[in-house]
Computed example of a mutant assay.
Amino acid sequence: MKIDLSGRTALVTGSTAGIGLAAAKGLAAAGANVIVNGRKQDTAKAAAAEVGHGARGIAADVGTAQGCAALVEAAGRLDVLVNNAGIYQGAEFFETEDDIWERHWQINVMSAVRLSRAFAPAMVENGWGRIVMLGSESAFNIPADMIHYGVSKAADVAFARGLAKRLAGTGVTVNSVLPGPTRSEGFLSMARDKAEQEGKSVEQAGIDFVAANRPTSIIRRPAEPGEVASMIVYACSPEASATTGASLRVDGGVVDSL
């Protein structure tokens, strides 16, 4: 299958590293005109240069209403929106104050709500569009040490399903992609610390983390960002025209259900 997104403009939020950067590269390789987004102009521009294919970088903090508005104005009309920006942090529930809940809600959920609300009408008018939310296996497998994160990701999945139904019959599809443990910068930082403490390789530390914390994993290793990006690119493609309102799992089999 050859995915061709020539002539389409795609925005990937939070795309200066990790899954977002891999998705931006995949979309650009498929011919899309890609907009890379990060909070800082220098990192956004550097990531856009790494993506190549004429990608451009726009700095905006999508964790605020003002940042979303600035990004909407700078980006212009879109065909593809990948709501990838997100954060996570471990925290004991009884010690997780409102500000942590609010920060996760604004970045992980409201950024997707605001940007989808802004960009979807033009997609509907054009009769074609793709919107993807980055969920997580944690949406179904709520981690006890990150309840706030799991709740925000469950909201992303629910939002994608609801928006898909709202846009029924318009030619605009909306899906969520659910990664499991993935070798992003945050994961690698944790793995490096663990490897140093226990005198093992970073790769082995990652495998051990999955075994200890996601024992239902079938691949028994963390995924690579590019493996998740492949699902994102497919969900954004013309070939995915009958896939909408779906939760597309790239979790390595962590969620133990049919």
Rank of each mutant, 00 (worst) to 15 (best):
D61Y: 09
N84M: 12
R161G: 15
A44G: 01
D251V: 05
K153N: 10
D145E: 13
A65P: 00
V72L: 03
I35K: 01
E198V: 01
E224M: 14
W101I: 09
I87H: 03
A240G: 11
T16Q: 05
G252V: 01
K194P: 00
R114I: 11
S189E: 14
A28T: 10
S247Y: 10
S138R: 06
A10Y: 03
V113N: 05
G31E: 05
A85V: 13
Y149P: 07
T16V: 15
T16S: 12
A60V: 03
E196A: 15
E73C: 00
H104G: 12
V80N: 07
E102W: 09
N83V: 10
V255G: 01
V202G: 06
A164R: 08
I100P: 01
S247E: 15
A24I: 08
M1H: 11
N33G: 04
E137V: 10
A32W: 03
E92G: 00
Q204V: 01
G76K: 11
I107V: 15
R166E: 15
V250P: 00
G129L: 02
S247C: 13
H148T: 10
R56C: 01
G57E: 01
T244S: 14
H104L: 15
A32E: 06
E185K: 11
V174L: 07
F187Q: 02
A168M: 10
S152H: 09
L115E: 05
A24M: 05
D61G: 01
G180I: 08
M133Q: 14
P215I: 11
R183A: 12
N175Y: 09
A46Q: 12
E198L: 13
G38C: 07
A32S: 09
G57I: 04
E102K: 13
V228Q: 04
I87M: 14
V250D: 00
G76S: 08
S152K: 06
F159V: 03
T173E: 05
A44L: 01
E224P: 03
P215M: 06
